[in-house]
Design a protein around this nucleic acid. Structure first.
Lengths: 212, 212
DNA sequence: GTTCGGCGCGAACATGCGTTCGAAAGGCGC
DNA sequence: GCGCCTTTCGAACGCATGTTCGCGCCGAAC
């Protein structure tokens, strides 16, 4: 796992840029041409070296069976999260689409999965307004939520208010047969409504502030 | 760009999971086996259909020359950002390493590049303490910074304090030949020090709060 | 019924591509 | 100089893989 020869370094660089551009690994002969090497066996030789040193992984007998390891290669699992819309701005958010891949032009953000704690089906919303400012959630923040239909008192949840036809982000408290939706902003009043009127959409996981 | 047959849908799914797992696209025959198709020509046929419909791109005559387009394929540029250490906790942070890829075991987070506004060489730090709480930066947050050697008054910057040998995140104000490092916490006092004593490391871009 | 187009099938073909082998050309210590 | 190892070279071998073509199997339109 030490330093590598200039040629190996060159090959590694070529590997990266090739994959970056084409989205699939190069063949031995691609590398040969790309690095101006005279023989395929030289490429093979150095590839073995790189494998020994742990920089790449190769699937033998398989064309283009090269995988970059280490640093960039030991890639953390990356999840792409749809940004479904805005929250607490009065307008309804689109119902979480069937995901799969119909949502072509939809906003997406990608994060390492530890940023959403390995949860699945996480979605995101843009926060409008400062109703949760004391929970350090500001206007313009992006909040990550995991789908949920229920929550315990004090949870920060996105809820659908049937009568208002809007989604809002608040702390939730069950009080008998009604629900208190508590903003984290001392200048704002809680919303009291009936339990039937609220439909929990998701629970707060984490948040991101795009800019200053 | 309309709906696709069950077989095409299946192939597309297989493509995704294969690439996800192996890091390189499957061959025609890989698809054949993986989807229990009896002939390679059937795969080829449906692959052409998928290409016509714009779901994939193929490089002819090239083994495994398949690239997924659309939705997941038109992948947003993802940048990996090193989390260099903690800030404002008293201990120094390691000097931003030479990047390239010597930093194997280093913590990394990946985000879409719009989350760091396309800046380059961005790095990240974990925040310790609540000295910036009123700027909505809490203990445990991860802040993204762009390298900078100077800043204008009011900027949130990470500065190296030579005499204390520590890095801290504060708002900076130049006051004559001295510098005021202003915490965003009314219970804390600003730090006054000489301009020579501070070395600006980076400017605040954005922040992320991992958990509730 | 017949026809036609979408789709699947299997086999053969041509070539892309990984692998192997023998030989030779450097470094490096002796 | 002499060994010994690493690296390079060129060519051939052979499997892996993309491509093609003729032939069936429908279901829809006529």
């Amino acid at each position: 796992m030490k330093d590598l020869s200039p040629k190996q370094d060159q090959i590694l660089d070529f590997l990266r840029s090739f994959i970056e551009e084409k989205d699939y690994p190069p063949s031995i002969r691609d590398i040969q041409e790309g690095c101006a090497i005279s023989s395929t066996s030289v490429v093979d030789y150095n590839l073995r070296k790189l494998e020994d040193k742990g920089y790449i992984r190769r699937d033998r007998e398989i064309s283009r069976g090269i995988e970059i390891l280490g640093a960039r290669g030991r890639r953390a699992r990356i999840v792409e999260i749809p940004v479904l819309g805005s929250i607490a701005a009065g307008q309804p958010i689109p119902v979480p689409t069937s995901d799969r891949f119909g949502n072509d032009t939809q906003d997406m953000v990608a994060v390492t999965e530890d940023m959403v704690r390995g949860k699945t089906n996480v979605f995101a919303l843009r926060v409008k307004g400062t109703s949760m400012i004391e929970d350090l959630i500001d206007d313009g923040d992006i909040v990550f939520l995991e789908p949920a239909r229920s929550a315990v008192d004090g949870d920060k949840v996105a809820v659908w208010l049937k009568d208002r036809e809007e989604v809002t982000l608040k702390r939730i408290y069950h009080e008998g047969d009604r629900v208190r939706l508590q903003p984290a902003n001392s200048t704002m009043q809680p919303i009291y409504t009936s339990a039937e009127n609220v439909e929990i959409q998701g629970k707060f996981i984490s948040s991101f502030r795009p800019s200053d």
